[in-house]
């Protein structure tokens, strides 16, 4: 039922945005952003459940578990930056959209560097 409510909210928001854009263009974009954020926050409690479960697995994974937190952060940053970039693109600001995508990727790469370093150390240990 919650899924249906979220879908109805999304479709209603989209229709209102389309109508408002025709009437008053300046209000269309904020409504679109509001609609996107509402839908996102409506689904957030379920995401929280998934993250909590993954965190319980993290304890049983030992040393590897520390990297799972990093991976969740990367996924979160990629999702949020992707959404922000698409909203900017919808508003016609393609340069801002590209900048948001780039900064999201740079942050993700900086977070993943320790994992890559661990992998490279392991690789060097097995090479003759």
């Amino acid at each position: 039922m919650d899924a249906i409510k979220i879908m109805v909210l999304a479709i209603t928001g989209t229709m209102l945005t389309l109508v408002l854009k025709e009437q008053k263009q300046s209000l269309g974009m904020p409504l679109a952003v509001l609609c996107a954020l509402s839908v996102f926050f409506a689904g957030l409690p379920y995401l929280e459940e998934i993250v909590t479960y993954v965190r319980t697995l993290h304890k049983s994974l030992g040393a590897v578990g520390s990297y799972i937190g990093v991976l969740l952060k990367i996924t979160g940053i990629a999702t949020i930056s992707g959404m922000a970039a698409k909203l900017c693109a919808d508003a016609g600001m393609s340069a801002v959209s590209a900048a948001v995508t780039l900064s999201g990727k740079v942050i993700c790469i900086s977070l993943v560097l320790p994992v890559i370093a661990k992998f490279l150390n392991g690789l060097l240990s097995i090479l003759p």
């Binding site: 998934i50 990367i74 996924t75 999702t79 698409k86 993700c108 661990k118």
Partner: peptide
Amino acid sequence: NLGIDKDEIGVIAFVAI
């Protein structure tokens, strides 16, 4: 699969781990 698009950096991170 939680990501919007295919998260290449996430894939690389998982492959590295």
